[in-house]
Design a protein around this nucleic acid. Sequence first.
DNA 1: ATAATAAAAGTAATATTGACTTTTATCTCA
DNA 2: TGAGATAAAAGTCAATATTACTTTTATTAT
Lengths: 253, 253
Amino acid sequence: MTAPTITITNLIWSFDRTTQHVNLLLLKRDQAPFKAYWALPTTTMRDDESADAAALRLVREKIGLALDRLHTEQLATFTQPQRTPGPRGVALAYMTFLPEMPPLTPGYGASAAKWFQFADTPTAYQLQNGTAAFTTPTSDQATYYATQTTRTTTPLTQLAFDHDWMIAMASQRIRNKLDYQPNILLTLGPTFTLREARTVFATFLRCPLNALDNSNFKKNHRQLFTAVGTTTAKRAGRPATLYRLNYLPLTNA
Amino acid sequence: MTAPTITITNLIWSFDRTTQHVNLLLLKRDQAPFKAYWALPTTTMRDDESADAAALRLVREKIGLALDRLHTEQLATFTQPQRTPGPRGVALAYMTFLPEMPPLTPGYGASAAKWFQFADTPTAYQLQNGTAAFTTPTSDQATYYATQTTRTTTPLTQLAFDHDWMIAMASQRIRNKLDYQPNILLTLGPTFTLREARTVFATFLRCPLNALDNSNFKKNHRQLFTAVGTTTAKRAGRPATLYRLNYLPLTNA
DNA sequence: ATAATAAAAGTAATATTGACTTTTATCTCA
DNA sequence: TGAGATAAAAGTCAATATTACTTTTATTAT
């Protein structure tokens, strides 16, 4: 018996200011297992690096981005013996909130790399740019992994490994932290408008944007944001106030 | 280079109805490294079991307790290469909230097993029954692990490995979840009085019990508890109402 | 019975939230 | 230049929640 491989999987989030959508990075695998499936960026931890460092390395390798301030946080660790076909692999899942949305080029092990618009609903992820959507796992964790070994899947409707489950956990974690530590707002960069913050909140609260009243939103979260200026608008309407996060998120790169 | 050992460390919490204190289980190690130091219960993950299962096995082995409802949850995973002296070990930390506080007998690898009263303050854990106290790590994570290799320690004032750091993280996690998912209340068993719930809350909010007004506490957390009866008091004073948690916690044993 | 105790129950001022309306600053296009 | 359109800020007010506090109730000990 050999010790399980330790892999690092990183959920890399960004925000597209053009489409006003939260995005998640997926890679199309070009090797077995799950060849031709979309999957979250994954690497194996090296002998001399921590998992945190490996997660950051993944961002550099997959995005080619050299940012001096980057927030990465642990999501959870996945250890079920049957979570991978073949040799056992333990996955440490991380989340990275990119302050911008750089263009992508597929690297080693991937035939494609793409930002997927993320829209969370109780029954399905709409990870789509007009091309693909993925249903959420509906069962509890034990049931989910019990069916992993026997599942019949297609690359068009499902993700590789237990990555759908990871996304479900990530979405819930982000939702839970929305009111006291909304690190997902780091995807908006150093400053953002209230509308942008509301857009991100609405995504994870599974409600339409206008269900979050701008005025009330500002009052209810005033301890989280500080006004730092205004947009110089090149569009109709009163310029929006720019805010920044009040707390300084832990950065690790 | 060999793959790191995967170890499971479990923070096992309980509540002592006699002393009205939250307690944490520590074992006194009888082998190197950190021989004679107090440490959290730890085991290595087996080839055929998940980390969750290993955490539960740890409860059975260290407590000899066969409970049909037991809540265990993941805390975090610790991967810094220098976190252990000697061969690299990755630790998956779990928390278990025992619904009772059974007597302890030291098992394999331990010369003593003991429930330590837990009192969290910004600068020190008072893990004590009149015998020992442990200072909290005050630095950030990077600094903490940088000094791990060179630290000079004594078994009386410090815990083995990075277990002090784990406890700091656990305390903060419990505090963060107090308002929406206070699983720590599972240590109170199936039913509890408001005073007991306030005692637990006060422990992690680092305030005296009477800073939490009984009447207000009831109103502010009414969505979390349901009244299910009253104590049959053998003491002065009006009998207390008994409550149970409204949500059903995930149990995994 | 009476005092002591502990917790429930009640109260009123204040603060927060939520639904909604009004005002303001900008752009567009005649 | 000015009217209309647009988008966001700012304001309003009733409903709700929170806080600090007092009063009442149910029990035990003497």
